[in-house]
Design a protein around this nucleic acid. Structure first.
Lengths: 245, 245
DNA sequence: CCAAAAGTGTTGAAATTACACCCATGT
DNA sequence: ACATGGGTGTAATTTCAACACTTTTGG
């Protein structure tokens, strides 16, 4: 895009508004969140049942219009917090949905963003109050507009991205066990993995810190907790390390 | 996003315009093209020197505002054709540039798109007439606004993408030789590759068709032309094949 | 005949896959 | 004592990286 950065005078701005900008079109901008969660070995998606017109009663992704004084990711974080109580969610731009006729009559471009949240973290009351709910990923209902397409794009991106970034860790609690991590990757890729090979691989990255504590909720023996070493991860990332599992 | 798809009545539309949409903000939408070309073993970028205000005389990517009745990629193709004569360019969305203050005073979101073109194809007259020019990639001048950032993001994406899609083929003529293809990949990755290993790898994908004809412009012996087998490529892509070179 | 680029195979190292048993503990 | 899930090592296979010479032909 080709707009001047320098002049600060209101006079010039308003001149532009008349001469340069104002001959162009303006549109509504929205953002929709494709939010994956992971719970009991199953990949889930956060969607909600609309309580107001238009489309009352239909299922939809969580989304919002973007305001003039906020960035797209601010808008997404705002609506996420309103709807689920979650703040500062790790979110990534997916792509824009900009077909001329994707809405009816009024041009609106939506910017899809996908998010990975720890399913234990969300505010259950808020989710209930606003009609948001977790759906098992491969039992999703029909969603409004092009939202099903967004979900399809997002899972494809998630799978590809998980190959070069340890993105899966974002879906787990602060402390997690290797069996949990493995079953997460199995959910993302929809295939079983060998536990010996999996452990070898993820530990070889050197970004996991083993804790003393054990999780005994899923076995008598208990599984050691690990946590993610952000510092080491950033070091490796800047060198272009490949995290394919 | 959450807008009704069904009702068709103007009455309802105008009701919405008042009640639902109109309380939201509208913005200018632009698109900017990060166009890579490949010529004489060197990776180049198409930029242009602005001939009108604002920013007259400064270097910029080629871009345009998006109109109400066109998609983002239509807008990009329109401006590309106006500026270089090129039609139907393979183009991919990069990301949105949506910082609230990326322009001055008037909110404008730009959608970056990167393109790969065969440098032989462009219309030289149009390029000259409009002030567009090819710059060697690692000798780029300063560009307006956040355009340098866009270029940085685009080359990173190009390198990553070339790992799982044979994207590089788009940068070459219909018929190309393996030495040409190799030197393209060397330009993208900025490192030398072993010709024996390179040939083994790209031929193993099974998406190249060897032609009888030879290119004798760069050696006495001549190098066989190959062409790209789109049909086979699409078959493989749907199975999720990895094209890392 | 020679310069200049095209084309071709092999070998060792590294990474990936396949595979089966013991461990710790709560009941 | 036993059922349950956690944890570990090794060998076969595949993939990757390094490496040098012969071929063709226009000048």
């Amino acid at each position: 895009m080709e707009i001047e950065t320098k002049p600060n005078f209101k006079f010039i701005n308003s001149m532009w508004e008349n001469d340069y900008y104002s001959i162009h079109d303006k549109m509504y901008i929205a953002t929709d969140c494709i939010i994956f969660g992971f719970d009991e070995g199953v990949l889930k998606l956060l969607i909600f049942k609309r309580k107001v017109q238009p489309d009352e009663g239909k299922f939809s992704l969580i989304g919002s219009f973007v305001k003039l004084n906020e960035s797209v990711s601010s808008a997404a974080n705002r609506v996420l917090e309103e709807t689920t109580g979650l703040k500062n969610v790790f979110m990534q731009e997916l792509k824009t949905y900009n077909a001329v006729d994707r809405d009816l009559g009024f041009r609106c471009i939506s910017i899809g963003q996908y998010a990975l949240i720890r399913i234990e973290d969300y505010d259950k009351d808020l989710v209930e109050k606003y009609g948001a709910m977790w759906y098992t990923f491969d039992e999703l209902p029909d969603l409004v507009l092009d939202h099903n397409l967004m979900v399809k794009d997002a899972i494809a991106r998630l799978r590809r991205k998980a190959r070069y970034q340890p993105i899966g860790f974002e879906l787990l609690p602060e402390k997690f066990t290797l069996p949990q991590l493995q079953s997460l990757y199995e959910a993302i890729y929809q295939r079983e993995m060998d536990s010996r090979n999996f452990r070898k691989k993820v530990l070889s990255f050197g970004v996991l810190i083993k804790l003393e504590e054990k999780d005994k909720t899923s076995s008598k023996k208990g599984a050691f907790y690990y946590k993610f070493d952000n510092k080491k991860y950033n070091e490796l990332l800047s060198k272009g390390i490949n995290f394919e599992v």
